[in-house]
Amino acid sequence: MKLPKARKRGESYRIELMFNGKRISATRDTEKECEQWAALKLLELKTGQAQEEKGIKPALPFKQLCEKYYIERGSKLKSNPMIKNKLDNIDRILGDLATKSIYEFKPADIVRWRNKRILEVQSSTVLREFAMFSSIFSYAQKELFLIESNVWKLVTKPDKGKARNQRITPEDQAAILARSKWDNINPPQNMQNYVGWSMLFALETAMRQGEILAMRRKDLRDGFIHLPMTKNGETRDVPLSKEAKRLLSLIPAENDILVPVKVKTFKRTWVRMRDQAELSHINFHDTRHEAITRMVRDRRLPVEILAKITGHKTIGVLINTYYNPDAQDLVAAFNEKES
């Protein structure tokens, strides 16, 4: 096949190839560099075609598949920040598997990775990573038709691990709020104030951190706040308690975004405040556990109403994971009818 001539485009040169009805092009600084690229590319394409005709598939490193998946699919998902973070650190997370061709993956490779990774991070983290990598292989199977089956589905998933049941006591709440340097009376002024405000608001509403940071003034309604987009991709209306309304009244009227703090800044500030209070075992998401438990204890909400408020589709997850009563809560509920 005769190589085409490169064409000058401004200060550079551009060359185009046609191979099996597909147009491939490149731009280089000189005409000679274009010709060199074209010769190598054509050789690569012919070699790849010959290998495929013999049943030999060219190597496709897993990290390269991950990049394609993120561009075409992952970046459009609501969970894209988490996916991008994992893929940005894929060499550290996967080790040698990151550069291994997807055609050479064996169940034993995944088992070794799973067992090693469980020693490094919590089992829940490994489970999320396992699910994401399996989804990427399914994408290669069902969308790109590169593989016939998903090898990840042949391997037992990591254990889910014990459900987290961390409560936030009034003393914990006071200690973290003190680190926010906010008096809970005047409007919040800085990011520390807003993080403290958000903790109290979360304890009243059971809203997630991302939902609180996404709140806009236009979403406030009479007695509730409308969430146009939640974690599960659906809308939700969250009723506001008297205390939640009071907290909202403290937000400056000019705030369109009610909590004007970026996600990364919020997380860093929360961790710093929590650690300064010597409560490093508490996560912001624990406010959701605590709020749900209080709603059951103090408001006696039936589970079907509670699920609407919190956005849980699965009642079992709501009750077994997020409702965390202590022994005294159970004793009080058990004896309530007798008093």
Score class of each variant (00 low, 15 high):
A202H: 04
M295L: 08
I185M: 05
T293R: 07
Y139I: 03
R268A: 06
A214N: 07
K142Y: 12
H226I: 10
E143F: 15
K63Q: 11
D256N: 13
A59Q: 13
Q36R: 09
L144M: 13
A253V: 12
P58C: 05
N89Y: 13
I251P: 11
P188D: 13
Q64H: 15
V111T: 14
D96N: 07
R297Y: 03
R246N: 00
V259N: 08
I71K: 15
Q173I: 08
K106H: 09
P61H: 05
M18Q: 05
K46E: 14
E31P: 07
T27L: 04
V111R: 06
G55N: 13
R221M: 11
L60E: 00
W182T: 02
E290R: 09
L154G: 06
L220Q: 12
Q166A: 12
R216A: 09
I136C: 01
W270R: 01
L213W: 06
D286V: 02
M229E: 13
K142Q: 13
N190A: 00
T156I: 12
R164I: 10
D222E: 10
L60W: 02
S25Y: 02
R236F: 00
E290I: 09
E120V: 08
V155F: 11
P188K: 07
E35F: 04
P252G: 08
G95T: 12
E67K: 10
E234F: 15
N186M: 09
K313A: 07
Y103V: 01
K242D: 10
P325K: 04
E304Y: 11
R164D: 06
T169P: 08
E204Q: 15
P325C: 06
I71S: 12
Q173H: 07
N184C: 11
L250F: 09
I118L: 12
M191F: 10
